[in-house]
Design a protein around this nucleic acid. Structure first.
Lengths: 182, 182
DNA sequence: GGAAGGTGTTTAGGATAATAGACACGCCCT
DNA sequence: AGGGCGTGTCTATTATCCTAAACACCTTCC
C-alpha cells in the first residue's frame, strides 16, 4: 500500500552511481540518515527528503512519479493502436496497455457534427494537441476558437472544455494529456 | 527555493471544500497537524503527508506535480508555435512560453538524412508520438524499427534513443514528452 | 445576551526522525 | 598480516514532528 520510499531512494542513488556517503555529502545530511531512510526504518520529513534529492539532483515530483519497471513495448503499428472511441469520435490510443504511463497520446478523429457534449468535460492534469486535418471548435473556460491544420492548443484539464466539429469534413488531431485519462 | 508544501496543501484542501478538521478525520490525523503543516511551521514526514493526502484522495506524485497558476494562453495558431529546431530537424513547440508545463508537445519535421546522432539521447521522463507522413527509423535501447504514417511509439526517455530519417521524403511527427525537455 | 457549533491556531508532552560517531565487513595493496 | 580506504549499519543524543486539548474567533439560533 504505502510507497517504498527507501527502496525508491536506493534505486535512484544507484542509478546515479553514488554511495550513501557521497550522496549525503552532496545533500548536506549524514550517511546514517540515508541508510535509515533506505531501510524504511524512518519516514523522512519532506524537507529532509528534498535535501537528499537536491543532492542528485531530482525533484520531489520526479521522485514520486518515477516508476521502476522493466522496458515494455516501444513500437506500435498503426493498427495496434487501441480504439476506444465511439461512432462519432475515434480515439486511437498509443501504449494503451502500458501501466503507469506518465501520459496519454492519442490519434483522434472527429466526424462532422461530432461533439463532446454541452456538459463540458473537466478532469485533472493538462492536455494539448495539434490539428492535422479539418477544423475543430474548441471551448475552454470562457474562450472559444476554431482551429485548423497546424494549429494547436494547450490547457489545464481542470478547466471545463468541449470539442465540436462544426465543419463538414472530418477533423484529425494528435493529442497528449497528463496524467493519463485512459 | 523550497516548495511551499503548506500553501500547496491548503490549496488542495480548499479545492475539495474540506475543513482542516474534516480532512483530518478522513486522513486519520489531528486537525492541529494540518494547521501546522499549512502554516509551514513543520515539514511533515512523507508518511504523514501521505496519510493526509489519502484523505483527499490524492497521490504524492500528483501533489508535487500540481502547479497552482492562473489560466494562460490556450490556443496557438500554426505560426505561433515556437520553432526550436535546426536545419535538418524542425521542432515546433506548443505552449513554449508557458512555465511549469507538465509536458512538451511538438510538431516535428525530419528532412531526408536527418539524424539525432549516433551518441544516443538520454534524459528523464517518458515520450511518445505518432508519425503523420514519411518514415522514420527509431532506435530505443537495443530495438530498432522503421515507422510509417499512423504508426506510433512510446518509451521511457532514460533509455538511450535515436531518430533517423533514412528515406528521401521528409517525415512529420507529433510527439509528446513528460516532464518537459524544452 | 449567551449557548452551540463551526472555523483555524496554539501549546505541553510524548513519539519520531536526524546527527555524530562508533562499528563491522570487504577489497586492494605493500 | 596489517594498513588504508571503501562500503552499509547501528547507537546515544539532539532536534523535530505529531498529538491531545485548550484557545480565540466567527456565525447561527433561541
Amino acid at each position: 500500500m504505502s510507497i517504498d520510499v527507501g527502496g525508491h531512494l536506493k534505486a535512484v542513488r544507484m542509478m546515479y552511481g553514488l554511495s550513501q556517503r557521497e550522496l549525503a555529502k552532496r545533500a548536506g545530511v549524514t550517511n546514517g540518515t540515508i541508510s535509515l531512510i533506505e531501510q524504511n526504518r524512518v519516514s523522512p520529513s519532506v524537507s529532509s527528503l528534498k535535501k537528499v534529492l537536491d543532492g542528485v539532483p531530482m525533484s520531489l515530483a520526479d521522485f514520486f512519479t518515477l516508476d521502476l519497471q522493466e522496458t515494455p513495448q516501444v513500437f506500435y503499428a498503426r493498427d495496434e493502436l487501441a480504439d476506444i472511441g465511439d461512432r462519432d469520435v475515434s480515439l486511437r490510443l498509443v501504449a494503451a496497455k502500458r501501466t503507469n504511463r506518465a501520459m496519454t497520446i492519442m490519434h483522434e478523429r472527429y466526424r462532422p457534427k461530432a461533439d463532446t457534449g454541452a456538459d463540458m468535460l473537466s478532469h485533472k492534469g493538462e492536455e494539448g494537441g495539434i490539428v492535422l486535418t479539418g477544423h475543430i471548435e474548441l471551448t475552454v473556460g470562457g474562450q472559444s476558437r476554431v482551429l485548423g491544420p497546424g494549429d494547436a492548443y494547450y490547457f489545464a484539464s481542470a478547466v471545463p472544455h468541449r470539442f465540436r466539429n462544426a465543419g463538414d469534413e472530418p477533423c484529425e488531431i494528435v493529442s497528449a494529456s497528463t496524467p493519463p485519462t485512459f
